[in-house]
Nucleic acid binder design. Structure first.
Lengths: 228, 228
DNA sequence: GTCTATACCGTGATAGAC
DNA sequence: GTCTATCACGGTATAGAC
């Protein structure tokens, strides 16, 4: 069975293949699984669907990834590293000492990588943005341990940055506002409309990334900076 | 098999029973299912777990409710009616003609029933608030049709009210802001912490309803009323 | 009408042949 | 690495007891 750590270091597989020369078995499984998990959800996607569309044997999933759970984790881990790196790079750029740090700049530093990722199919595209957002929003059991260890940097960096950008507030208030802010942002990119389920007349196109950001940023910034 | 419409009209079952005199089969199933769906999620809860704890036969679920999907719908429908009614009653109270209608009053008209419900075990309590919030946030396939027909009133009433409370904005902007506002609010009561999953030092108690509201309302109101 | 026992098929997982 | 066979468990349907 393939080593998980290796997958994060070695060149990223998938979607860089010419037609007619198929990528290897593990990559074919990852690509198909990613698409099906987004389309139908984790539980509703069976290994038999995945292996059939990937044109591999059913047992190949367990051989290469160990289990359906571990396959999901691999699908996620293949893409999340570069995304977090992109956010941290944006943070580096706006956190230059001496420079003013605004809440809007921080929100944008997160939103912009989301937008970039959603327009880059070679890194998963809009499909993966939705998978990532939903998985985090739904607090998916499979990622609680895998992610919490590895990517605490992400939250720590943003926590410190928000403390700097909003010095007038106590850290508990900032924690709550970050909690709400990231909740809206992830949900916005998850592409689910909480109101559509109740049936609404005035429909919002919750799938257009540019449109999302145009309305999202002012809302979140206002919430973050509102007087207590 | 029991008629679904009947369940919404007849006195609500469950949790009003003395010890030692068990409620009927269908009610025992509903009570146990509600708890297990919240604790473990829909997919991870098997009918055999439910029927075992409810001390009924496996086939009783299919007899009384038709399927696992329909059972979930029944669990949801038993509680959602009174909740929506409570919201509409709050709306009636603040929508008196001649009276000023603020965004904060509208937010409160939704948040207060959530708080009341989460403190009333006889109507499902905090357990059901979480189930409701998660189900809506996750855009659960089982409720897309069942809810969209019946409770469009909810969204329509709030849409009109927000148009009145925020006359300076165009209806498309209002739609987006409502979308974000209800997203944060439902997520807040869902009890999931998007940041905890990344691992954080400054932890927020995302399960204390009073604490949620104290921080939630200013955030949402600021986002709704922010200048464009 | 209500409840029970049981059988059916699809699911993820695994052992072992090649 | 790959494939087949097999397993236990899941939701579901039904025949029949009371």
């Amino acid at each position: 069975m393939m080593n998980k750590a290796t997958q994060l270091i070695t060149p990223i597989k998938g979607q860089d293949h010419m037609e007619a020369n198929k990528p290897d078995t593990a990559t074919r499984i990852l690509d198909v699984a990613e698409r099906l998990f987004v389309e139908h959800g984790f539980e509703a996607t069976s290994l038999r669907m995945i292996t059939q569309q990937a044109e591999v044997n059913l047992a190949a999933v367990n051989y290469h990834f160990g289990s359906k759970d571990a396959l999901f984790e691999s699908v996620f881990m293949r893409r999340i590293g570069p995304f977090v790196a992109a956010c941290l790079a944006e943070l580096d750029a706006i956190e230059q000492p001496g420079q003013a740090l605004t809440a809007e700049a921080l929100v944008t530093s997160f939103v912009r990588p989301c937008l970039a990722l959603s327009k880059d199919p070679s890194r998963g595209g809009a499909l993966f943005v939705r998978l990532m957002s939903r998985t985090l929003v739904e607090n998916h059991r499979l990622l609680r341990e895998a992610l919490s260890q590895q990517y605490s940097v992400f939250v720590q960096r943003y926590s410190i940055a928000f403390q700097r950008a909003l010095p007038q507030f106590e850290s508990e208030d900032i924690a709550w506002r970050m909690h709400f802010a990231f909740t809206v942002m992830f949900n916005a990119f998850a592409g689910n409309d909480v109101l559509k389920i109740f049936g609404r007349s005035q429909v919002v196109n919750a799938r257009d990334p540019d449109l999302i950001i145009k309305h999202l940023v002012p809302f979140v910034v206002a919430g973050l900076t509102a007087p207590i």
